[in-house]
């Protein structure tokens, strides 16, 4: 009897450990995504997009013509930078250059939400879902596009399509078409730094896919503020490259 009691007890302990292990695996196992949530703030701002590998944007003839038109129009006032003047969303990839902080929220369930202080832009990233149909993308073009995401190891991969063609690639007026598609690879490169590498695919205006890289500091000491066009906003003089006009 004593044998049974002893081994029963040992077995119980063993089994309990196993169950605990199984349960905790199912809750926090390989499927658990890395925690990217938090507030991030760039330390560098570039009006002109800096492409990986250096050099100029690889524009097609049509892309070059559109760029020249935007640059001339911004100068003579026939083209308005509506993102700065009326605070409509910046769109991708321009919003990634924001000199204001933004926050990544891993929620609600099945979604990651990126909220920018600048123009209180909100990006909805639907996780592990297919991209909406072409019909839907064409019918409802968004400034910031439609985004779906998934995790590859420690990296959040966000694919976006269904953009309108009202936004610029950057503050100099570099153009894109409404057929642009982007892939962002978002990951922590240190406990306090976030990296986003965006690949832009837009064959009408760009001769090849190209990439741009953005790095942000995690700033959970900061709270995002309200932002309204034409009002005084947060001091962003600490961000290199920012020039108050």
């Amino acid at each position: 009897m004593k044998h049974l009691r002893v081994c029963g007890c040992a077995g119980s302990v063993l089994a309990t450990l196993l169950v605990v292990l199984i349960l905790s695996c199912s809750a926090h196992g390989a499927a658990a995504p890395p925690d990217l949530s938090g507030i991030y703030w760039a330390t560098q701002y570039n009006a002109k997009i800096q492409i990986v590998g250096g050099g100029e944007l690889p524009l097609t003839a049509a892309g070059k013509a559109a760029y020249d038109k935007n640059v001339a129009g911004l100068k003579d006032g026939s083209v308005i930078d509506t993102a700065r003047r009326y605070c409509v969303p910046d769109g991708l990839p321009r919003v990634l250059a924001t000199p204001y902080p933004f926050e990544i929220v891993q929620g609600p369930p099945g979604q990651i939400t990126i909220i920018y202080e600048l123009n209180h832009e909100v990006r909805v990233i639907k996780m592990d879902q297919p991209m909406p149909s072409e019909k839907e993308l064409i019918s409802f073009p968004f400034y910031n596009g439609h985004s779906v995401g998934h995790f590859e190891g420690d990296t959040l991969v966000v694919e976006s399509a269904g953009f309108n063609d009202k936004t610029f690639i950057d503050a100099t007026g570099a153009p894109h078409t409404d057929e642009m598609r982007t892939v962002e690879r978002i990951r922590k490169i240190s406990p306090s730094q976030l990296e986003i590498v965006i690949t832009v695919h837009d064959p009408q205006y760009h001769t090849r896919d190209w990439q741009a890289r953005f790095v942000y500091n995690q700033r959970n000491d900061v709270r995002l503020e309200d932002y309204l066009c034409g009002e005084e906003h947060r001091d962003i003089s600490s961000v290199r490259g920012v020039r108050r006009p």
């Binding site: 049974l4 081994c7 029963g8 040992a10 077995g11 119980s12 063993l14 089994a15 309990t16 196993l18």
Partner: peptide, 12 residues
């Protein structure tokens, strides 16, 4: 031992 393990499983 297996009996004990099984009982333990049930318990847990």
């Amino acid at each position: 031992l297996w009996l004990g393990t099984f009982a333990g499983f049930l318990l847990a």
